[in-house]
Design a protein around this nucleic acid. Structure first.
Lengths: 159, 159
DNA sequence: CTTCCTCCTGCAAACAGTTGCAGCTACAAT
DNA sequence: ATTGTAGCTGCAACTGTTTGCAGGAGGAAG
């Protein structure tokens, strides 16, 4: 758990306490190789401490989220996904028909964040976006099967 | 209800049915002057039909969402907000400290959607974004109180 | 080491949203 | 007008997340 020392310091400095439960939750997220659901975090922590409560997990995630140590993303799965933010920044394109998830490089969003900062003075949190839409293949299927049914949607979404 | 005729046509052409419940839900959303929660829609519909069920409201919203007639947005209030999309397209900047909500013109996001379409062939649904971050004033307060500034983001989207 | 204050925990109940099911209905075809 | 059927409805049960509360523990100060 020595690798959590910096995090522990960050927590303490903002008036938060370092409890065994929090350490276990922290450790579970850090050592996972990617996104996790709250249930997966629970499961992992339960291996060392069976009495952990869901509300503790969510409350801890709330704290870590507020401190921007962990990102929370709705990937359309009916549950949030949590990830340690220190790993490389990336985003996701999620097809609403076939549910395929692909990666989107952060460079696509840096421009947006810069524009918003310039024009509105607003510093956007863009760590982990999930953007829904239609992948290339599903666009083709929609065009052939739907006829001109959704003529309106055929028009441009963003362009 | 004559103003719903085009919508009715759209629904029918995609194999959906036009039921009284759907008409009432449709009407409630169209005649509201902005975002509504599912509960508010329920309440409104109940004035003319007391037996409407939550699941019917959500299922109908799901259909309308999928057809891009209505947008669904997580504005950080613990419940989704729904809005008729034919009104001018717009997005929101939401400050995570002071909860202030400001408008963001659609032009900021058209470029992003175009870039994604060009490079990934993916047609992003960007009907109604809520972008979280820090407003100008709260950035200043954070800077003076010695905050470290990093971001976490939540991507949520209306289909 | 003790005291004290604040923050944290587990529990239970509440809340927003989803799902499986059996029966009903819109609506196209006849 | 009648029929057939895909799709819709209300109900109830369920999932994921949040909240109020009373007791418990971290950790700074003495």
């Amino acid at each position: 758990m020595s690798c959590e020392r910096a995090t522990a310091e960050t927590l303490k400095q903002s008036g938060q306490r370092l409890t065994p439960q929090r350490l276990m939750i922290l450790s579970a997220i850090r050592h996972a190789g990617g996104h996790m659901s709250a249930a997966q975090i629970m499961e992992q922590v339960k291996e060392s401490y069976a009495y952990i409560d869901v509300s503790t997990v969510y409350r801890t995630l709330g704290v870590l989220k507020r401190m921007h140590l962990v990102s929370e993303t709705d990937m359309g799965l009916g549950e949030y996904r949590y990830e340690w933010v220190e790993r490389m920044r990336h985003h996701h394109l999620i097809c609403r028909d076939c549910d395929n998830v692909s990666l989107l490089d952060d460079s696509f969003l840096t421009g947006l964040a810069a524009d918003i900062l310039d024009d509105h003075g607003f510093r956007a949190d863009i760590d982990h976006f999930a953007i829904f839409g239609l992948c290339e293949e599903c666009q083709r299927s929609a065009d052939t099967s739907g006829g001109k049914a959704n003529g309106k949607a055929k028009g441009k979404e963003g362009a």
